[in-house]
Amino acid sequence: MVWTIYHNPRCSKSRESLALLQANGIEPTVRLYLENPPDAATLRQLLSQLQLPARALLRDGEPEYDALDLANPQLSDDHILATLARHPRLLQRPIISNGQRAVLGRPPENLLQLL
């Protein structure tokens, strides 16, 4: 099984999630998504694994959220995913995937569902 964590080392929840994986003997691929943003196709695949709507991946506290009018309920999933690919700071973090299923690591204990 290939584990991946979409990680921001400045985020405490992301660091805690990575530590929880490692404490369970899992050394995931660490993708620093701010430096290497996932494209819209990868985000769509993650959505399928998460079983969540695209809007659930948005961080609504970031300045870009308001500036890009992302609260607009008329926005399509395609629009949201394309925006996330261009503005990775808006992506909820961390996202942990085992290749088949994924969870948001807020709180980090969510990833216990995958272990």
Rank of each mutant, 00 (worst) to 15 (best):
T42N: 11
E16M: 15
A23I: 11
N72R: 08
L20F: 09
S97K: 02
E16I: 12
L91H: 01
L18C: 05
G25H: 03
L18K: 01
L84M: 05
L112H: 11
S17L: 02
R31W: 09
Q92R: 05
E62T: 06
R31C: 09
P108W: 04
R89L: 15
R93K: 02
L68C: 06
L52V: 07
L32A: 13
N110E: 10
P108Y: 09
L104M: 10
L20P: 11
P108R: 03
P37F: 07
G99T: 00
D60N: 13
Q92W: 00
L52F: 09
P94G: 01
L52Y: 07
L84K: 02
D78I: 10
L32Q: 13
N8H: 04
R55D: 01
Q45W: 10
N110C: 11
H7R: 05
P108G: 09
P108D: 11
A23R: 09
T29W: 14
Q74W: 13
L18H: 09
A67R: 13
L111V: 10
S12E: 14
L57D: 00
Y6M: 05
A102K: 02
E16R: 15
E16H: 14
S14F: 06
P63Q: 02
R86N: 14
Q100S: 12
L84W: 10
P107E: 11
N110D: 07
Q51H: 08
T4Q: 14
L84I: 08
A67I: 06
K13N: 14
D60V: 07
Q22S: 11
T29P: 10
A56V: 06
Q113I: 11
V103L: 07
P38K: 00
S12H: 15
L46K: 01
Y6P: 00
I95T: 06
I96F: 01
W3T: 03
R101Q: 14
N24M: 08
L50D: 02
L20C: 07
S17H: 02
P63G: 03
L52D: 07
L112P: 04
L34K: 09
G25F: 00
L50M: 04
I5Y: 00
P73G: 06
D77N: 12
L104E: 03
P108M: 05
R55Y: 12
L91G: 06
I95D: 04
S48D: 15
A23K: 08
M1D: 12
T42Y: 10
Y6T: 01
R89D: 15
H79K: 14
T42I: 11
Q22R: 13
P94L: 01
A71N: 14
G105N: 03
K13S: 15
R44T: 12
L104Y: 00
T83R: 00
H79R: 14
Q100N: 13
L68A: 06
H7N: 03
T29N: 15
L50G: 01
R55L: 04
L20K: 04
N98K: 06
A40C: 05
R59M: 01
C11L: 05
M1R: 13
R89A: 15
R59I: 00
H7P: 01
Q100P: 06
D66E: 15
P28Q: 02
Q74H: 14
D77R: 12
P38I: 00
E109A: 14
L111G: 08
P53H: 08
L84E: 04
P88C: 04
P107I: 07
P107W: 10
N110H: 13
Q49K: 09
Q74A: 15
P108E: 08
I95V: 12
G99W: 10
Y33W: 05
R89N: 14
